[in-house]
């Protein structure tokens, strides 16, 4: 790929404007800071590689979600083959560290860790849909990212929400 200044500028802009997508997709699939660093590197590599193909037909955010999630799914399959099973004692401390801001408090961090813990317990499709739902995407955007029909997204998302609620109930009874 040609390393031209336009591509470099676009890459830098993506890293700044869409850092939230990259961060959340990374931590939705990675369980430890080391895994997160590995997956983030992989996502950034694929984002960089995808730039020549980006012609502006799709929205930037749609494009970036697709690259992040495809990379994460592929990375997870490879990670599964490297280690037979995911470490049940996942170290989610990196999430809190990454999310730290003056406004953050212990309760917020704890809530995030529980939420990511629940997301990690979901299957791949549920995980993807829950991430997109929490980011506030419409069914149409979710369909563009996943390749499903809007109807399928609706049905699958309802199931995913129920599963997430069931998992979170194990953490707290207040989730409706």
């Amino acid at each position: 790929m040609s390393r031209n200044p336009v591509n470099e500028a676009l890459f830098k802009q993506w890293l700044d404007s869409h850092k939230g997508i990259i961060f959340k997709a990374t931590w939705s699939f990675a369980h430890t800071p080391a895994d997160a660093a590995d997956l983030r590197q992989e996502i950034l590599l694929q984002l960089w590689n995808s730039i020549p193909a980006y012609k502006g037909a799709a929205r930037e955010s749609t494009w970036i979600y697709r690259v992040c999630l495809n990379t994460a799914l592929s990375w997870r399959r490879n990670a599964n083959r490297r280690t037979a099973r995911i470490d049940p004692e996942a170290d989610l401390g990196g999430i809190a560290a990454g999310a730290a801001s003056p406004a953050d408090d212990a309760a917020h961090r704890e809530m995030l860790e529980k939420l990511y813990g629940a997301i990690h317990a979901l299957g791949d499709l549920d995980r993807v849909l829950v991430l997109l739902m929490l980011d506030g995407l419409a069914y149409r955007e979710m369909a563009e990212i996943t390749g499903q029909t809007e109807n399928s997204v609706g049905v699958a998302l309802t199931r995913a929400r129920k599963r997430l609620a069931a998992i979170m109930k194990g953490v707290t009874d207040e989730l409706e």
Partner: peptide, 11 residues
Amino acid sequence: AWNRQVPPGAA
């Protein structure tokens, strides 16, 4: 809680 996350930027 999800939306209050402050991810590290490219800085």
